[in-house]
């Protein structure tokens, strides 16, 4: 890897960590109701409450908070489903796109409501502008705000004592959207427009090509089926085209929140690899920063709200260590030459003329480092946007994004959900430490007892059940196998990646798997639902249980949770759970594929 690659990674991390404190401090003030935005926009905020018939002073028990979250998300899912099914009857559809099929509409509605943003469809060929804006972009805001609201409720569980309530879900949701997500998105969208990201209601443009393009395409019979010759091979015909349709639309406003809200659903099918969604190196840097910005800053917010910023820094340190370590696995893996191509004498060395390494599926303007760094960031966070095709990564390079998702999306993770997942791992870590020394574990002054650990067990066990169970079922069912076009280990990796993505609410796709089928749309949709809400509910239950407890002063037997020792213990807990659960499955996919690739060099 060239030294410029190290600099790019270093600059990215420095800017990210430098922004964590100011933004984290601001978000803490928002949730405390003390920011300048709270004061200036209070009339607007109160007007929303009056319109919705909400009393913002009414505190909620954890069960009320959870039910409000469920009802709100049910309504969001139903709305996005209806918009897709009725889009042919609704305005802002200049391409006259038809209704989305029921299974795809279900998958997409669930995907955007759960902050997963798995996309079985191609945006520019499926969704009207109205569906993209009113359905998908709105859910980008609201699903992100839901995750952050659950996190704030959990933090109140730690900071309150002998309390029955966790705050008001509607207030947390409104403040997150109004004071955090909207301002950041407006600023980022405007900067992206300045860089060339498209934002328009105009219909798609048809342009003349500077050179006619000729290609072969399958010939269709009168019945619309592909004609085949006597040998059973498809009959093709030569086609020459002189024009191209360029999809446009209100992309920048969606791209900004899809990155900031760790949603990841692209306006266009190829997501941020599309030149109108991510045109320049600067737009690429800003979009990459936006992926991890709020998850990183929320660690500091957590520290402020529990009254000890060292606790937030410790968690951010644990996340950063894992992220950096895995960046330095993926990027060098992609920078290495492909042995198959090397055997053919292809020059794959990095030079002034080329990025070198494995450039299949990567944009020339981003190169190896920015593709690998994005892949790790987007799967460390539960973002899932891509600027390169993960299916074309080397086996090791592709295994890391997959494993990051399988770790439970706690290395930065989704906005809100990543940190509450990591805090659950912290509870398990102090529990393990407590077992070692025979003392009741404590975290932030709250005793961690059997109930919290039972809830933590649900949080940790649900995703592996969805990922491994879903993969196993898909590979046994004919409908599941019918979508796998790559034979052997790589085909297995594609299915495992799809369920790892849905079962952890990431949303990125390995590609290669034909997932827009009734089977995958349904199975992945159900996986996304359980992965989101059956983790958020036990987290809120933990919050409710902790809020009711008194705060125990730290004593000589208390394990300090802001030290490097605890950071190491936390990292060990996350990695061990992730490794023990998923290494057998990874061994069948990317590990086998890597060994097959290395065997090329053997005599």
């Amino acid at each position: 890897m060239a030294h410029t690659g190290y600099w790019q990674i270093a600059i990215y991390l420095i800017v990210l960590l430098a922004l964590a404190k100011p933004l984290g401090g601001y978000m803490a003030r928002v949730y405390q109701g003390e920011s300048a935005a709270n004061r200036w926009l209070a009339p607007l905020e109160n007007r929303f409450y009056r319109l919705a018939g909400v009393d913002p002073r009414q505190e909620m028990h954890w069960t009320g908070y959870a039910v409000a979250m469920l009802i709100f998300n049910l309504l969001g899912t139903a709305t996005v489903y209806a918009l897709q099914r009725l889009q042919h009857l609704l305005p802002l559809n200049p391409q006259v796109l038809g209704a989305v099929t029921p299974d795809s509409a279900f998958n997409t509605a669930v995907s955007f409501a759960t902050n997963t943003n798995w996309q079985g469809y191609g945006g520019e060929t499926t969704m009207s502008y109205l569906t993209q804006m009113l359905g998908l972009t709105v859910q980008n805001f609201l699903s992100a705000a839901t995750g952050m609201a659950v996190l704030v409720a959990l933090i109140r569980g730690f900071s309150r004592r002998n309390a029955d309530t966790l705050g008001n879900f509607w207030v947390d949701l409104t403040r997150t959207t109004l004071y955090i997500l909207l301002p950041l998105s407006v600023v980022l969208a405007l900067v992206l427009v300045g860089q060339g990201v498209v934002q328009t209601f105009s219909p798609y443009r048809t342009v003349q090509l500077t050179q006619p393009v000729g290609y072969e395409q399958p010939k269709l019979g009168v019945d619309g089926q592909v004609l085949k010759d006597t040998a059973g091979k498809p009959v093709t015909e030569a086609v020459v085209t002189k024009e191209q349709t360029i999809a446009v639309g209100p992309a920048a406003s969606q791209v900004a929140i899809k990155q900031l809200g760790t949603n990841g659903g692209g306006f266009f099918n190829v997501n941020s690899a599309h030149p109108l969604e991510n045109p320049t190196p600067l737009s690429n840097l800003l979009e990459m920063l936006a992926i991890l910005l709020i998850p990183a800053a929320l660690c500091y917010t957590f520290g402020v709200l529990v009254g000890d910023t060292r606790q937030g820094w410790a968690i951010l340190a644990a996340m950063t260590v894992v992220l950096v370590a895995l960046v330095f696995v993926t990027v060098p893996a992609e920078q290495q030459s492909n042995p198959v191509l090397a055997a053919l004498g292809v020059d794959q060395a990095a030079s002034a003329q080329q990025a070198g390494g494995n450039m299949e599926g990567k944009e020339t303007r981003f190169g190896i480092v920015n593709s690998g760094l994005w892949a790790v960031a987007t799967t460390a966070a539960s973002n899932g946007s891509v600027n390169s095709m993960h299916d074309s990564f080397t086996p090791v390079g592709g295994m890391i994004p997959m494993w990051l998702m399988q770790l439970g999306e706690v290395i930065f993770g989704g906005v809100g959900s990543g940190l509450y997942g990591m805090i659950v791992f912290a509870l398990v870590a102090v529990f393990v430490a407590g077992l070692m020394i025979g003392r009741t574990p404590e975290y932030l002054g709250k005793k961690i007892e059997a109930y919290e650990i039972k809830m933590a067990a649900i949080v940790i066990l649900v995703p592996p059940l969805l990922v491994l169970g879903g993969t196993a079922l898909a590979l046994m069912a004919d409908a599941g196998k019918a979508s796998v076009f790559n034979p052997g280990a790589h085909g297995f990796s594609e299915v495992l990646y799809a369920f790892s993505s849905a079962g952890n609410n990431n949303g990125s796709a390995f590609g290669g798997l034909s997932a827009n089928t009734p089977y995958y749309n349904s199975m992945l949709g159900v996986a996304m639902l359980f992965a989101r809400y059956w983790l958020a509910i036990p987290v809120l239950a933990i919050a409710g249980s902790l809020a009711a407890k008194k705060i125990v002063p730290a004593g000589p037997g208390t394990l300090p949770t802001h030290t490097p020792l605890f950071v190491a213990l936390l990292i060990g807990t996350v990695l061990l759970v992730g490794a023990l659960t998923f290494i057998p499955a990874l061994a069948l996919g990317p590990v086998v594929e890597h060994l097959q690739l290395m065997a090329i060099n053997q005599p």
């Binding site: 069960t63 469920l70 029921p102 279900f106 159900v526 639902l529 036990p538 249980s545």
Partner: peptide, 30 residues
């Protein structure tokens, strides 16, 4: 409009409300 998937979604959220109830019962009994 096809209501199969809307009903499936509704069933899931009803089940999730059951999880909320179950978690609270467990909390009160522990």
């Amino acid at each position: 409009m096809d209501f199969t998937f809307l009903i499936l979604t509704l069933l899931f959220f009803a089940l999730s409300a059951g999880l909320v109830y179950g978690c609270e019962r467990l909390r009160r009994s522990s």
